[in-house]
Design a binder for these strands. Structure first.
Ligand code: FES
Ligand code: FES
Lengths: 141, 141
DNA sequence: ACCATACCTGACTAAAACGGTCAAGTTTAG
DNA sequence: CTAAACTTGACCGTTTTAGTCAGGTATGGT
């Protein structure tokens, strides 16, 4: 299971973006300053977000990024997937017939981790960017 | 968030132990062989489990470990806590007034991670060792 | 035309975490 | 008295993390 800074920052940056992009594109510099995230790191992250069609870029002066979809249609799952944070709790390869112990049968705890995986993914699938923006409406930076 | 081999092995080993400890203490050697876990690593893990009163040790020949509580009373939460796998999704210190960004206010995604933390912990609190043993009754190694 | 702004790309790296191993015990049953 | 099993703590190679650095390229405002 992975939940690292990359994923955390991705979500943070997108919430920021969603709140400010209504008028103009938002530059990474602004996000960097507002959220205290390294600019270089943000560029790395947004490169991936762009490849996954979550944001669009506008180059040149006054350029920046804008969302490529409705915030309601951007689920946390999508974001994590874009930045390669996989919620993977089982150790074995899902399709393989072998267990994580190298034996022919699944290990003694396989079902448990699988259940947990579903549990967590459900959480991420039910949360959209819009939900997060809504919760932050009153506490503007 | 952490979910590493140590936690996984701890659960795996305890399920194994729970299934075999009815008659005699179970030696780590046996668990090691049955579950394909390094013996040295198991010793490290069981040392912690013992400190947290989850298992008892019986020294000498024919010794081994036995559970220190009813399998129904051993929740996964307890196991993870014992081996220092903390389900910690927020980045900031909970009690601190400062956010993970160093600012005075909580970061824009703090509530989200907090909610996730509760979501996962609930899962672990509702699962006991007994539940896992039950599910493996039919598929004996 | 120019140039500042902002996106874009890839290589690089210090530090931490992971997944153990190794060594040197101590305790107890048989 | 000795072998089996627990006990403790140091150690370490590899991988991942969380960025940094260095150089681009595109574009629009003046
Ligand atoms: S996690 Fe799938 S076999 Fe162990
Ligand atoms: S996670 Fe608590 S302030 Fe960011």
């Amino acid at each position: 299971m992975k939940l690292t800074s990359k994923g955390r920052y991705a979500v943070m940056a997108l919430v920021d973006l969603a709140r400010f992009d209504s008028i103009n594109p938002v530059s990474l510099r602004d996000i960097s300053l507002r959220q205290s995230i390294s600019l270089d790191f943000l560029e790395q992250i947004f490169s991936k977000l762009k490849k996954n069609n979550i944001v669009k870029s506008i180059r040149g002066i006054n350029g920046g990024y804008i969302l490529n979809k409705d915030p309601n249609d951007i689920k946390l799952t999508n974001i994590f997937h874009a930045v390669d944070e996989k919620v993977k709790t089982v150790q074995c390869k899902k399709d393989s017939k072998k267990g994580c112990n190298g034996k022919a049968t699944k290990c003694i705890t396989h079902d448990l981790w699988d259940e947990l995986e579903v549990h967590i993914n459900t959480f991420f699938e039910n949360k959209s960017l819009q939900d997060l923006v809504k919760n932050n409406r009153d506490s503007r930076v």
